[in-house]
């Protein structure tokens, strides 16, 4: 985009949004949010970057390839689902473990949380991947011969 203002705002805005998305993800079990919403917000942040500064720049900023991100996300969710099978329980049975966290006190940590994290990454990866693919195609459409 040609707007200088927007180009300069985005690097400040996006990291903030990413942090927010992670917050939405983590509190999702107890308040509105969760993997889907968190992932979508994170993807929106990246979409901002992409719109404002171009696909290539957004890719560089992301560092990780969206394809890898989504594969990793699905794999994480899958692994969290498979874990109980090794404990002899049906797949996707939640395994909970109360963990002492310094500031927050006792927190239940379990495979559903891991599952949600997997969903988060999958959603981020998928959305950005789709966006990037279409953007690139569109860029080529615009520049290349019809």
């Amino acid at each position: 985009m040609n707007s200088y203002l927007i180009r300069m705002t985005v690097p400040w805005l996006c990291p903030f949004l990413l942090v927010m998305s992670i917050w939405i993800l983590l509190r999702g079990h107890n308040a509105p949010g969760g993997g889907f919403i968190g992932g979508l917000v994170a993807a929106a942040a990246i979409a901002f970057w992409c719109f404002a500064r171009g696909v290539e720049d957004a890719k560089r900023w992301m560092r990780v390839s969206p394809l890898h991100l989504m594969i990793a996300g699905v794999s994480t969710a899958l692994i969290s689902g498979l874990m109980p099978m090794f404990a002899g329980k049906p797949m996707l049975t939640a395994l909970w473990h109360k963990v002492e966290v310094p500031l927050l006190g006792k927190l239940p940590l379990g495979t559903p949380i891991l599952f949600d994290i997997g969903v988060f990454f999958a959603v981020v990866g998928v959305t950005t991947s789709i966006l990037f693919s279409l953007e690139e195609f569109e860029l080529w459409n615009r520049s290349g011969p019809s």
């Binding site: 707007s3 949004l17 949010g33 919403i37 929106a44 901002f48």
Partner: peptide, 18 residues
């Protein structure tokens, strides 16, 4: 929460259209 996300997205869609 909804309002928060809407604020973000309104901007995004405006940029997209722009």
């Amino acid at each position: 929460d909804v309002a928060l996300v809407l604020a973000l997205l309104g901007f995004l869609s405006t940029i997209g259209f722009a």
